[in-house]
């Protein structure tokens, strides 16, 4: 395998990590007002994310950084091209992170209620927009060769809102909602667990419907090479297994299968892309691929050494975090759920 292909693979892995992990915490954020009915429950739901959400988000930063290092042309064209959607994602991630940290500082309903709305919206927007963005990448967007020789996005904002990419967005939205529901059912006790299980079933069925449409459209009009068919098959079969496991209230399995599906949705999209990284709707000669978008061989070599050496450690200690916080959370464990630490001044 050439280093260019290896880095294409590695970036796919980073996005898999990002969507499998932050996918469920988007889902939990969206479900927050529906799955929890009082302050103790609400805080129990948020506490399932507490120790892990920030580490999950780092996968995005590393995917961004790795794209910059390995495929600078891809990084430059993608983020300057998909300017407004990316901006909305950034704003969402800013609000979300702050909301987690600040919402329980006071007990007042006006304070907590606003942060809760912020959490739901700022989880929903990225869950939707990442799907829109990736569907657009796979579908191909207008790229034009500039005088300086760079492939620049020439489509504008509304070009990104086409039926295929919107369907992609709604699909990832419901995929992440379901994924989050399975996670919650796995990590909580009592009423939340029951509700999450039920919502996981409804959202899961809807996801299945949307995914079938999206995959069918992808196979018909984007790519039907055999790898893509294979990826789609694994994603679909695994999803059926997730639905069945959730139906039988086997939460661990449901979550594992939905993680596999999420991974294979990403893998399938990357398989459909390869060896392009941003196919152009203006024809092959303006497409960005793993060669014309890449860094030099030396840079790829340096980054390969770094990645091969460091990634195992990252997986190890992130895995350890999940192991440390493996216990289910019961709302009854949240002491003084109604009050915030800043409510009263100590004498």
């Amino acid at each position: 395998m050439s280093l260019n292909s290896f880095w294409f693979l590695l970036i796919a892995v980073l996005w898999v990590g990002y969507f499998v992990l932050e996918g469920f915490d988007f889902g939990v954020g969206i479900l927050l007002p529906f799955v929890s009915k009082n302050q103790a429950e609400r805080r129990a739901v948020l506490t399932t994310l507490g120790p892990v959400w920030d580490g999950n988000e780092v996968w995005l930063l590393v995917a961004g950084g790795a794209t910059f290092a390995a495929f600078p042309e891809w990084y430059a064209t993608l983020f300057s091209g998909f300017y407004l959607p990316l901006f909305l994602i950034l704003v969402s991630l800013i609000v979300r992170g702050v909301a987690f940290e600040y919402r329980s500082k006071y007990g007042k309903e006006s304070w907590r209620g606003r942060w809760d709305i912020a959490i739901t919206i700022s989880s929903l927007l990225p869950a939707l927009l990442w799907g829109v963005a990736f569907a657009n990448i796979v579908r191909g967007v207008p790229l034009t060769k500039s005088a300086a020789g760079a492939m620049e996005y020439s489509g504008g904002f509304f070009n990104l809102l086409n039926p295929y990419s919107l369907l992609g967005g709604v699909t990832t939205l419901f995929l992440f909602i379901s994924h989050g529901a399975y996670f919650l059912a796995l990590k909580t006790e009592g009423e939340i667990r029951v509700r999450a299980n039920k919502m996981g079933q409804q959202a899961g069925l809807l996801t299945a419907l949307l995914a079938v449409l999206f995959f069918a459209w992808t196979l018909v009009s984007v790519s039907h090479r055999s790898w893509v068919v294979g990826g789609v098959t694994i994603a679909v079969v695994s999803w059926l297994a997730a639905l069945y496991s959730n139906f039988r209230a086997r939460e661990g399995w449901a979550f594992l299968y939905s993680a596999i599906t999420t991974a294979f949705v990403v893998i399938t999209l990357f398989l459909a892309l390869y060896p392009n990284v941003m196919p152009s709707s203006n024809g092959e000669d303006t497409s960005l691929n793993i060669f014309n978008a890449s860094s030099t061989h030396y840079t790829l070599k340096v980054m390969t050494v770094v990645a091969v050496f460091l990634t195992p450690f990252v997986l190890l200690y992130q895995g350890w975090t999940y192991w440390t916080f493996r216990k289910r959370i019961n709302p009854s464990q949240i002491a003084n759920a109604e009050t915030g630490v800043l409510d009263t001044i100590h004498p």
Partner: peptide, 22 residues
């Protein structure tokens, strides 16, 4: 500058951001 500038950024993410946040 991506060929040069991206490398320390990616290393920062892999080595430092994961460590800090986790």
């Amino acid at each position: 500058v991506g060929d040069i500038f991206g490398a320390p950024l990616a290393m920062e993410g892999l080595l430092a951001f994961f460590m800090e946040s986790t």
